[in-house]
């Protein structure tokens, strides 16, 4: 499969809206969370949780529309997330880099981020993972295809880094178990 072709196709596969609505709504939500929870760590966790809940539903649309075949390993899965998933839902392209030797950890890097537009982080919130919802989405959607992963922002353009980088670590491949039962 040619990734460039997949990317192109992915963009047209879902109904689109202007990014501003998402950007501003998300911004307002983060502000609200900061107001409700004084502790930035709690805010990060809330965003992750929201993302997880979104991910478990987003995966359905993804599988229904993306027309991809089974991924045979984590490498392939990561590639599909970066090339097809990011394009399809956020309209941006991402790259998979920094593979660890054992093939269980990689980084998804991307330059633009629709959630980040118009945003500046005051110094007192330097521990805030503003786009942490994306990590949640990754965990939630991959859980639905039996991959238990951890996702963490390690670079954020908002904090002055050159790229956005999410480190993705595969923790476990869940096995579906079926047991005999009486009929």
């Amino acid at each position: 499969d040619n990734p460039a072709f997949l990317e192109l196709a992915a963009h047209d596969m879902s109904d689109k809206i202007n990014a501003e609505l998402l950007t501003m709504t998300y911004g307002a939500m983060v502000q609200q969370l900061l107001k409700d929870h004084k502790d930035v760590k709690t805010v990060n966790a809330e965003l992750h949780k929201m993302g997880y809940n979104i991910g478990v539903r987003l995966i359905d649309e993804f599988l229904a529309k993306a027309n991809i075949s089974n991924c045979s390993n984590f490498r392939e899965t990561s590639q599909v997330i970066a090339k097809v998933g990011f394009k399809m839902f956020l309209g941006i392209t991402a790259d998979v880099t920094k593979w660890r030797q054992d093939g269980k950890q990689c980084s998804i890097t991307f330059k633009g981020n629709p959630l980040n537009e118009f945003v500046e982080i005051p110094p007192k919130y330097s521990k805030l993972r503003y786009s942490n919802i994306l990590c949640g989405v990754l965990c939630g959607s991959l859980h639905m295809v039996n991959l238990l992963v951890e996702a963490e922002f390690v670079q954020d353009v908002l904090l002055g880094d050159p790229d956005n980088e999410i480190r993705l670590t595969l923790k476990e491949v869940l096995q579906e178990e079926y047991h005999d039962d009486e009929v």
């Binding site: 809206i17 202007n18 501003e20 929201m50 809940n53 979104i54 309209g91 118009f118």
Partner: peptide, 27 residues
């Protein structure tokens, strides 16, 4: 920002539902 930048509408819809859920839980 490029005004033609576009995202999938499901992203917004699902975020919106999460927001409502959050506010209900919070209340």
């Amino acid at each position: 920002m490029n005004t033609s930048a576009q995202v999938a509408d499901s992203c917004f819809e699902l975020l919106h539902m999460q927001m409502v859920d959050y506010f209900i839980a919070q209340a």
